[in-house]
Amino acid sequence: MTEATKDFRDNGVKVHNSFTHILKEKLDKVDTDELANIIGRDIYKVRDENERMLQEVRASHEAYQKKIKLMYRGIGIMLLVFMLFTLVMTIGSDFMDFIHVDILQKAIASKIKTSEGFMTLVWYIAYGLPYIIAIGGFIYLYEWIRKKFEVFL
């Protein structure tokens, strides 16, 4: 039994030595410069493709940011239109009663009926002044809100 294992071990050492000898001969034949050139070209290809993809991602991100800003502006404009529509709908009704402008407008309307010339124009301007002030106030409110939320854009 010991002799059989000794022969097996000796044969294993011979096979190992011959394998490493053949491997060293084959490795000496390998052209490392050519391998370095091939690997270098592949690395440059990968780097160029990564740079191209990074540029595409940046361009996509910029387009996304522009669309987000456009969306917020669109929402702001819709809000402004809604506020102006609400203003027009309420000015002719209870809103004027609430701030007691209706009494003043009735007095101005009677003055418009009795006035002539340049004073008629002045009374028309005075009659429309609450509307102009209210619309200006809503535009100011819209711009204030837009500037506050501009930080998030």
Rank of each mutant, 00 (worst) to 15 (best):
W123F: 15
D94P: 12
L23E: 03
A59E: 07
M96C: 11
K69V: 10
L129E: 00
Y142V: 12
L70N: 03
D42F: 10
D42R: 14
G117V: 07
A36I: 01
L23Y: 12
D102M: 09
V57S: 00
L79R: 05
I38T: 15
E143Y: 13
Y131A: 14
D48L: 07
Y72L: 07
L121S: 00
V30I: 11
G76K: 09
K147W: 02
I75P: 07
E34W: 12
D28V: 15
K6Q: 15
A109G: 05
I139P: 01
Y44K: 12
A107S: 11
R58C: 06
V13Y: 03
S115R: 07
T120G: 00
T5L: 03
N11I: 10
I75C: 10
E51S: 09
V88P: 06
F152M: 14
I38K: 11
I99L: 03
M119L: 05
N37D: 08
I103L: 10
E62S: 04
I22A: 12
N50Y: 10
I132K: 00
S110Q: 11
N37R: 13
V151P: 01
D10W: 11
Y44V: 13
E25M: 08
I135E: 03
D28A: 15
M89I: 04
R146C: 15
K45D: 06
V13D: 02
F149D: 04
V30Y: 02
E56G: 13
L84F: 03
V81N: 00
S18P: 05
D48E: 12
R73H: 05
I145T: 11
